[in-house]
Simulated assay, not measured.
Amino acid sequence: MSATDLNPHIYRVEVRDVIQETADAVSLTLDTVAGPSASFDYRPGQFLTLRVPCSDGPLTRCYSLSSAPHSPTRPTITVKRVPDGRASNWICDNAATGTLFDVLPPAGSFVPRDWTAPFLLVAAGSGITPIISILRTALALHDNPITVAYANRCAESVIFARDLDALARRHPDRLTITQWLESESGRPTEAALRSWLTAPAESHAYLCGPAPFMAAARGALIANGLAAPHIHTETFTSLTTDAFSAPAPAICDSASSSTATVELDDEVHSITWPRDAVLLDVLLARGLDVPYVCREGTCGGCAYTLRRGDVHLRENHTLDEYDLARGVRLACQSLPRSGILDLAFDQ
């Protein structure tokens, strides 16, 4: 039985081209050959979840889209080799034209909401991947000024070096690119980054890279006066479950339940929601075609808007303060905490 038999949301994609970006990073352009719909829509800053067919068994990994959705370029992911990383090493060593992957629909909430504000796009290493998708979109479709601050070990490890240079030459009035090379400037500590990461107070900063770097960058930006709600980070964690399987959800027996109204695909459903069952499992058990990807609170693929009531999120690795303040929650992690709830997907 194939993965597409288990989960109807799965796409099958074929690698059309492999681009060697650096000695340890490749970009794969993808063609959809099978899936739930002919379209493969995504937003700048989102990622794909791949099933990587490693020699010792398939692994589920998330890789950001480096292409921009407005572009005629096929959807493209960029993968950097990670020391002892089984999936990234398999891709870098084996992916070729014609290689097939199972992928889940594009997901992630690392997507700008206000395209009029000045952007400070901060990346380290392979964190440039979603950043360049946002950058390409902003330059092509919007008018806001943009600064890219990109940190790497050395000049040879700079992914998209030629692309960034070409964009800077094409948009000298809007785009400023600064680079931090550890080989020349040492480690990018918070204290050191304070003089490097400066931006007008109305700017929105988007950060992607290793967790210690993002923590240092966030601290430097706050110390420089940028408001915390204007700082957005992208965090990836390795999935511990098979996101491609679609097992029958187990609904716990509970004497205590809530009542919820759920708006999904322009239809309204009334459900009984046990206090010890997450919303996603309850909806899947009713046969509803609710969106989801990882089931671990890391991707945002099952996000919905809570319009009434209160829920507890068991885990949250993707929603920021702005999302939470406007009622966005994750179905795979939501437990009801009030008797009556009202919520909607795709709001």
Rank of each mutant, 00 (worst) to 15 (best):
L341N: 14
L141Q: 12
T298P: 01
A155Y: 06
A285D: 11
V111R: 02
F40W: 15
T189F: 11
F101I: 11
I231R: 00
I77N: 02
D289K: 06
D323K: 09
D342A: 12
S109Q: 14
V33I: 11
A23F: 07
D102H: 15
L324T: 12
Y63H: 01
E190F: 00
H230G: 06
C54T: 08
F160L: 03
R12A: 11
V148E: 03
S39L: 05
S109N: 14
I131W: 00
F236T: 01
T116L: 04
N152S: 04
A248E: 12
S254V: 05
A168R: 07
H312F: 12
R337E: 15
G219A: 08
H232W: 04
E234M: 06
G85L: 10
G225F: 10
T235I: 13
A255T: 09
R113I: 06
R314F: 11
Y63I: 03
P274Q: 09
R74E: 13
P130I: 03
E263H: 07
P247C: 09
V148M: 04
V111W: 01
R308A: 13
T189H: 07
D17P: 04
G327F: 10
P291D: 07
R113S: 13
S37D: 14
S183D: 15
P106A: 15
P44N: 11
T76I: 09
T32P: 02
L197I: 13
L284R: 00
P130S: 09
A201H: 10
I146N: 04
S133G: 09
L48V: 06
T99P: 00
A215I: 11
T76Q: 14
A243S: 09
G108S: 12
V13C: 00
S195L: 11
E321M: 12
A217Y: 04
S55P: 05
P72L: 08
P53H: 10
D114A: 00
A211N: 09
N144V: 04
V290M: 09
R337G: 07
L48F: 03
P75Q: 02
I177L: 00
P130H: 07
G45A: 10
L319T: 13
R170C: 06
P105Q: 08
L164W: 04
P336T: 05
P145T: 05
F47E: 03
F244C: 05
V111K: 02
H204R: 13
V18I: 06
T99E: 01
G127I: 14
R169C: 07
T32H: 01
P188V: 12
T261V: 14
E184C: 03
P58Q: 11
T116V: 03
C92W: 08
I222H: 02
S66V: 11
D253I: 10
W115F: 12
D281M: 02
R43L: 15
F119E: 00
V290C: 07
T22K: 05
E234K: 02
T272E: 14
R308W: 09
G219I: 08
Y150C: 03
F244A: 02
P83R: 07
P112M: 06
F244R: 01
H232G: 01
L141M: 11
